[in-house]
Amino acid sequence: MFVRSLSIGVAAAALLAGGAQAADLIIPTTPQPIYEAAGFDWEGLYAGVRAGGQFTGSDASTYATVPVNTTSGVLGAALGVNFIPVDPFLIGAEVTGDYLWNSSATNSSEFFANLRAGAVVTDSVLVYAIGGLGTHNRGAVNTGVYQLGGGVELAVTDAITVRGEIVGQGDFDGAADSFFEGAKATVGVFYHF
């Protein structure tokens, strides 16, 4: 009888100890939040480089002393800042400087102060309109100029975008000529800080 009582006691102790260990293995946890990456951040400062071409019309008047029917190469840089006051609308300010060369002996440069307004179509695509005032420098002659156009900018990484832009250009030389006397098309790469 003693052996039987001892066996029942040992079995009961083993069952109670096993139950206590099993209860210790269950550890309540809270689930980890699911992180969803945000889209490209279009707001803030950016800088970049661009290249393209400038084309003047066949009009009798010239664009900023550039001869008619002239095609020039363009290398330039831009620095700007964007704001999104209300999603998806974007506004911004930008300054550009371009060096222009062609087959004539005198190369030129252009500097513009621009305003941009656009819409973020998807997280990585921006469509915008641009307009600005500036100066065209050819030799010793400086001419006041303006531009108006638009472009598309695509985010390719978290900080880098690629942009294509086309603008119509005119000057303030006082002649009764076309509103747009030339056009400039550029493609650029930009870094957003």
Rank of each mutant, 00 (worst) to 15 (best):
L79W: 06
F179P: 07
V81C: 00
G39P: 13
T65N: 12
V74T: 04
S5G: 13
G132A: 03
S104M: 07
S124R: 14
G170T: 03
G144H: 00
G131H: 04
Q169H: 00
A23D: 07
N142Q: 14
G73E: 04
V121E: 04
L79C: 00
A159K: 13
S103I: 00
Y63V: 04
T186R: 02
G164W: 01
F193Q: 14
A140D: 12
F180P: 14
A60I: 11
G76K: 02
A20C: 05
V120D: 12
G52W: 02
Q169I: 11
T135N: 12
D98S: 10
V66D: 11
D158A: 14
V167D: 08
A129C: 05
G73P: 08
L75R: 06
T143C: 05
D41Q: 10
T70D: 08
S72C: 09
V127P: 06
A12L: 09
V86W: 07
V125S: 08
T143D: 10
R50Q: 06
Y99I: 12
A185Q: 04
T157W: 10
L154K: 05
A119N: 01
F172V: 10
P67W: 08
L16D: 15
G73I: 04
A60R: 11
A47F: 10
F40Q: 13
V121F: 05
A105F: 07
Q21P: 00
E36V: 07
G149Q: 02
I130M: 03
G19D: 08
F55R: 11
V156K: 04
I84L: 08
V162S: 02
Q169S: 14
L15D: 08
L148H: 01
A13Q: 15
D87K: 13
A117H: 04
G18T: 14
D173M: 09
A64G: 09
E94V: 02
E153W: 05
A20Q: 13
S109V: 04
V141G: 06
T29C: 15
L6T: 07
A119P: 02
G53N: 02
I91Q: 02
V68A: 15
